[in-house]
Design a protein around this nucleic acid. Structure first.
Lengths: 185, 185
DNA sequence: ACCTGAACACCGTTCAAGT
DNA sequence: ACCTGAACACCGTTCAAGT
């Protein structure tokens, strides 16, 4: 009945994935593990740190092998953005978790760094690669957050919103990519 | 010592603006007004509704007159996005509040609708106007959220992050606008 | 190393009752 | 119309003490 950091993280991720971010409380997680809430603090300094680890776990579980050629920079951008999006959508409140952790500078740095690399490979200077990677990231986070919230609200019967009226992910992504293409030297 | 809905809203906004979203609790707001926490429920159905009203107040306080010509669609897009961004940045945790309320479909519809109108005026069809307005909105929310979080974290001495390394708002905005321009018929 | 048990200082919300 | 007072069912976090 003794746990290590990995056990606790898996349970925390499971709780978020099944029941949403609201279910991730130190008390409930403790109960799930059969320990006192205070026992969690032996593995994670605080809830913020735990949440950052959950975000990394969401990304880890959604990670895929790359298939695009090195010179196909638009394909590589789409591959990274799509992987990120799918990873978040695969977990209840996943977009909320990952975007929040990112905004507070606590994690999810890998996709940002990869997008930046692809844009530099494509020929953009450092400044534009930074701006471009952030613009893509904000787009993916915003779209996924909105889509996931709408889907979950409808599934919970909380709202009558029409899911078909959500803006298409790929069209918006291509808008941003086209704007970046126009800046290639 | 009796209050109406407007009084309560002004105090709630003040609390967020001065001390951040964490300071907006029903109990603290009640204390601020000199009433029991339960008294708030006579003016707002729940905290969610109150938060949506605070978001609208943030946007209302930041609203400005339009100056661009009707046919200068890129200028109009920049004007709307800039107003939205400035309104959010003017209030502690403003980006968090407005983006959250938006994502949950509880408000902040006005900027989205205005962006959509501008894009339709520019000649985009309804589908692209929807996609475009959302892409711009996600960009503005994401950028403002990240910028504000970084600024506040540095101001609070919580982190040593370099604010100069934040991506420039206008450059990213122009990337999206260029992508939209490429789709004009 | 990992956990208990108790405490501290909080939350949002409901509801009968008051003026 | 607006509010009180009390209650219910929760929170995150700390800390001395246990094995």
């Amino acid at each position: 009945m003794r746990h290590n950091r990995g056990d606790v993280l898996v349970r925390a991720h499971q709780l978020v994935s099944r029941y949403g971010l609201g279910a991730l409380t130190m008390r409930r997680l403790g109960a799930e593990l059969g320990v006192q809430p205070s026992a969690i603090y032996h593995h994670f300094a605080n809830k913020q740190t735990l949440l950052a680890a959950v975000a990394e776990e969401i990304l880890r579980q959604g990670s895929r092998a790359r298939t695009c050629e090195r010179d196909d920079w638009t394909g590589r951008l789409r591959e990274v953005c799509s992987e990120l999006r799918d990873a978040m959508l695969a977990c209840t409140d996943g977009a909320d978790v990952v975007a929040t952790v990112w905004a507070f500078g606590m994690g999810a740095q890998a996709p940002a760094a990869e997008l930046e690399d692809v844009l530099r490979d494509a020929g953009l200077d450092d400044g534009l690669a930074l701006v471009g990677s952030r613009t893509l990231l904000h787009y993916v986070f915003g779209h996924a957050f909105e889509e996931q919230t709408a889907i979950q609200a409808v599934a919970a019967g909380a709202v009558e919103r029409d899911l078909a009226s959500l803006p298409d992910f790929w069209t918006g992504l291509d808008v941003v990519i086209d704007g970046l293409r126009a800046r290639l030297p």
